[in-house]
Nucleic acid binder design. Structure first.
Lengths: 209, 209
DNA sequence: ACGCGAAGTCAACGGTTGTTGAATTCGGCG
DNA sequence: CGCCGAATTCAACAACCGTTGACTTCGCGT
């Protein structure tokens, strides 16, 4: 089996199936343990072919790291004045992840590899920092914009880590609505609320009307 | 230099210095890239000695994973009725981490290795789930206790990931007080607030009076 | 029909890794 | 003082890794 030379036509794009196998393995076991040989085996292909398509293992990671969805597309058309802004953000993000295994896989790659490999650490830093900052900057309050964006990111990343990657019991099996209800007001607070120290005055976070 | 045989007495516990070197490297580069040889080199010791003390590399990781501080000790004596409960929790945790590089290192190990190595993933799941649950169960509202605890954990883990491990710009350089002021009300909400969907009624999160 | 380049495979290389067993040196106990 | 066991080192092994270069086979344009 697996004779030499070019394969007879008919089956799908080989390059794509290699990339899919790579994404799966990166998500499952991280960068170092996802060996090129294992990726090739899952794609039913020779190890050399992987590097023939992607050059080097780092390049393969870079190719696997692209975000599956444009964050600004998910969060388009938000009403900055609504007191349900935070809830709406939470709902959209949670629904996107709950609906698509593909999206969850990419996030798992980002988290698994972004904590050892500098190449991916930069991507993760970007997601938490710049990306969310730009997509939320026109609905967030103008003061402390950077802090607000990173706080939103930190809560969402922590949530995804627990719910989708680690699958912590109480969090992974909770219904979407419940999580949205709990987290929504928090995002509302981070986006539009008063971030100053409570002891210096009175501040309230309105979760709804 | 580095002659054979037992070392002349005088210098400190070798086993301990190996463990320290291992913790540093696990925190810096994760499990796979922290080679036994590199750990031995940092501890100025032969690689074989590392395994002589700890048996196997997995055992070494297990030894390095122990929590540096008892969470229940940090969170002892909280006033469940105070509307500053969340702020107090945030302050204590943040101060603990900001003050001690040792604590930050252990958390970095947990996050870096807990996302590839199943051995550590369990420890991380435990921290997010059971540990925080038990230490907060007597100040959290009795309903949805598990969800409340995991939500608190997810926020704090996300925060530590961004602030201490990834060192995201807007978050890593913010003063403690500001972060406490922003996150405190959120923890208050998770611990004591109404987690039901806002559209089903009115709910407010009092951050302070 | 035919050849050129792309797609795919094979076998091998040099390097690194975790782990092991024998050899060596020293502290401490009798 | 002499010796036993613990502490430390050395050298080596087998496995595995990423990467490379030569080779083969097919699709397609002319």
């Amino acid at each position: 089996m697996a004779r030499r030379g070019r394969r007879p036509a008919g089956q799908g794009d080989t390059r794509e199936s290699v990339l899919r196998a790579a994404r799966e393995l990166f998500a499952e076991v991280g960068f170092d343990r996802a060996t090129i040989r294992a990726i090739a085996a899952r794609a039913e292909v020779d190890p050399a072919l992987v590097l023939h398509w992607f050059g080097t293992k780092d390049d393969l990671l870079a190719a696997a790291l692209e975000l599956p969805v444009d964050p600004s597309r998910i969060l388009a058309g938000l009403d900055a004045e609504s007191h349900l802004l935070g809830v709406e953000v939470a709902r959209r993000v949670l629904l996107t992840f709950d609906a698509s295994p593909e999206v969850r896989t990419r996030m798992a790659i980002l988290l698994r590899t972004g904590l050892g490999h500098e190449h991916a650490a930069e991507a993760l830093r970007d997601l938490i920092g710049r990306t969310v900052l730009t997509t939320l900057s026109d609905v967030a309050r103008p003061d402390d914009r950077e802090l607000r964006a990173t706080l939103v990111s930190s809560q969402m990343v922590g949530l995804m880590l627990g719910r989708y990657v680690l699958q912590v019991p109480g969090l992974a099996d909770a219904p979407v609505d419940q999580v949205v209800a709990a987290v929504g007001p928090v995002l509302q607070h981070y986006l539009r609320g008063d971030l100053r120290l409570p002891s210096a005055g009175t501040s309230r976070i309105r979760t709804a009307r």
